[in-house]
Design a protein around this nucleic acid. Structure first.
Lengths: 143, 143
DNA sequence: TTCATAGTTTGGAATAGTTCTAATTATCAC
DNA sequence: GTGATAATTAGAACTATTCCAAACTATGAA
């Protein structure tokens, strides 16, 4: 089973779990995110999807992205004024925002870190998720 | 020396350090942030400032906020689509975003936590700052 | 004090990103 | 296939922010 098929199955499955349909638009949007994991904006996704579905509309791209976020297949990321970016990495990870290039890198997190971070919450705060964002510069060695 | 005077001096000083002037607009905008630390949007700041400076313009509020951020007197916070929020808390802290009420709480961080978090960065990533955002619900006990 | 200069404020226009709306099209269950 | 429901589409509308040019203000030099 190819990786594309696997993705499609995962997608169809997860959508079905939420009572939603696996449409060509949703599949192509999802595949675009999987294929190049550079945290694209909706506009960038739109541009990439168009080569496969030339008649898709920007509104549909927004709809699809929103749907994928709802199904927990994709994370929406906002760390500054400016467009929302989309990330198909579901493992626990932080984001490193390179201030020179504007690029965003995923930083995998050791399993204990999120626990450690959660443990600083005082009584009365019940967090369902935590997000960690670094800002700085990445040297060439950090690809 | 009153706290307001102290703030004004701090402000004037920090602005001067950057070669900028301490104008009434900047002072009022800053005092509004200090007075009610509920992470207001630019529009909310605008509304609050108007009662003291009725002729101030929204553009000036944006300018002042930007200036205060540049001088490290205020932090701009973005954790979701929607307007930037402003926070005059300069101590190291995380933000807890209550999904029920929409309110944002500051969570003070133990001194070691930021180090611990930084330590997960692989070689080649040099972070100048890190931001931590929790999402969840806060019970009434968490004021 | 007066002037020149640079810094600041202002209102409105312009822009960017996103959401909304109403009409059309596709899909699923029967 | 038919009807009900879901999804897509184009464009209008909207929100947040930035840009712009003009007016205003503070500051330092003469």
């Amino acid at each position: 089973m190819s990786s594309a098929t696997l993705n499609a199955d995962t997608l169809a499955q997860k959508l079905a779990d939420s009572g939603l349909r696996a449409t060509p638009q949703r599949e192509v949007v999802y595949n675009v995110l999987i294929k190049k994991r550079d945290h694209p904006t909706a506009d960038e996704v739109f541009a990439r999807v168009k080569s496969e579905l030339p008649t898709i509309s920007l509104a549909t791209v927004y709809n699809c992205l929103e749907t994928l976020v709802q199904c927990d297949l994709v994370r929406a990321v906002n760390f500054e004024r400016g467009p929302t970016r989309y990330c198909p990495n579901l493992r626990p990870h932080a984001h490193f925002h390179d201030e020179q290039t504007g690029k965003t890198h995923d930083i995998d997190l050791p399993p204990t870190l999120l626990e450690t971070v959660h443990s600083v919450l005082p009584r009365g705060f019940d967090a369902s998720s935590v997000e960690i964002i670094f800002r700085g510069k990445a040297t060439k060695s950090a690809h």
